[in-house]
Amino acid sequence: MTAQQRGAIVVLSMATVAAILLVMTAVAGGYRINLTPSEPLGLWRIIPLHRPAAVGDLLFICPPGTAAMRAARARGYLRSGFCPSGVAPLIKIVIAVAGQHVEIGASVSVDGRRVSSSSLALRDGKGRPLTPIPSGIVPPGYVFLHSAFPGSYDSRYFGPVPASGILGLAQEVFTYVP
Rank of each mutant, 00 (worst) to 15 (best):
I95S: 07
G141V: 04
L22S: 09
S109P: 01
A3H: 03
V27P: 00
A98H: 10
P89W: 10
V87G: 02
S152W: 02
A19L: 15
S13G: 15
L90D: 07
I46M: 11
P140I: 00
V102A: 06
G127T: 07
L78G: 09
F174Y: 12
L59A: 09
R75Y: 06
A72G: 13
A121C: 02
S155W: 10
T16S: 15
P132F: 13
L90T: 03
M24H: 03
E103N: 08
S13R: 11
D57E: 10
Y153M: 10
G99V: 12
L41D: 03
R128P: 01
R114H: 06
V161S: 06
G76S: 10
R45T: 07
L130P: 00
T66D: 09
A71M: 11
V102Q: 02
L169Q: 13
G81K: 03
Y176M: 09
V97I: 14
A96Q: 02
H146A: 14
V143W: 09
V11W: 02
R75G: 04
G30A: 11
V108M: 12
F60W: 13
T25R: 13
R113S: 14
T2C: 07
T36V: 14
P162M: 09
T25S: 13
V143R: 05
E39V: 14
V173N: 05
P48S: 09
L21P: 00
F158K: 06
A53C: 06
G86P: 07
P37N: 10
V27E: 04
G159K: 05
P150V: 13
L169F: 12
I20N: 02
V10Q: 03
S109I: 00
V173G: 04
A106G: 13
D111M: 04
R6V: 13
F149G: 01
S38M: 08
G81L: 11
P48F: 06
L41V: 14
E103S: 15
Q4H: 06
A28V: 10
T16M: 15
N34V: 12
T25V: 13
P160S: 15
V94L: 07
F149R: 08
V173I: 15
S80G: 12
A72R: 04
A148P: 01
S117Y: 11
W44P: 03
L58F: 05
L41K: 08
R45H: 13
P40H: 05
A106K: 09
Q4Y: 04
I33V: 15
D111R: 00
R6L: 14
D124G: 05
T16A: 15
Y157W: 11
H146I: 08
A148Y: 02
V110C: 05
S116P: 13
M14L: 15
A8L: 14
R156F: 10
R79W: 08
P178L: 04
Q171Y: 04
P52K: 00
A106M: 03
P134K: 13
I46R: 01
Y176H: 12
P139H: 00
L59V: 02
A74I: 00
V110M: 08
A121P: 00
T175D: 09
L49S: 04
P162K: 06
P134L: 14
D124M: 04
A67E: 14
V10P: 01
I20E: 04
P52V: 00
M69R: 02
S152C: 09
S13Y: 00
P162D: 01
Q171E: 15
A26Q: 08
G136Q: 09
I95C: 07
S147M: 02
Y31F: 15
G136F: 12
F60A: 08
F158N: 02
